[in-house]
Amino acid sequence: MNLIDIHNHTLFGVDDGAKTLDEALLMIDEAIKNNISHIVLTPHYNKRSHSVNTVLKHFDELKNAVKDRPIELYLGREHKYYELEKNPVYYTMHDSKHVLIEFDTVLENPIEEICYSLSLKGYKPIVAHIERYHYLTKEDYMLIKQYAELQINSNSVLGLSSVKKDNKIAKYLLKNKLADYVASDTHDVTRRNNTLFQAYKRVKKKYGVQYANTLFKENAKKIIEDQTII
């Protein structure tokens, strides 16, 4: 089985990810080179990009354009935490119960509390790039994990993140087997490109095949297969 990418900005023309259809196709080719067979597209949902109809339209366009390529596309969203308080209807990952949320990296957000109240409503929150929130303590990860799943970026796994502390935290989370997903969070093909396969090889070598498969394939597969519509 190939890798599954659950967090990236490949969908074009809706956020700070790919700008045009051509750029999106380049990114998808790069993903295929990275041994990725399934992609859940997760455009931002925050102050700057609220669009819903454009996302659906561009998703159909992109899906048509990649018909001949060996890749499956699904639609999700990356929510900023404050959007979840205002909107009762969420755009979940491929209409499953999983919701991808990102928090503020500087302001201390009550991550555990937000995940708790979402889980009460029947959702399964996924905290995006958990290694970026430096205000969390080691105990906080355990508390958050009761209600949510944790996702790490592949760049931090490889030690490529420009913020050094990200790499350190990612290492800690992998070592203690606290992470649930690794995803690329790719924005383009030059600066923030796709490094998922490299990260997979690194995790396999350092932490074992079994854990690598859980992180890169099995957990993500559950999202795609879990089709319960709320």
Binding site: K138, E139, M142, L143, Q146, N176, K177
Partner: peptide, 12 residues
């Protein structure tokens, strides 16, 4: 890992 797992969990 074991040490971590036994730390407090908040099941109120």
């Amino acid at each position: 890992m074991k040490l971590l797992a036994e730390k407090r969990s908040s099941n109120y």
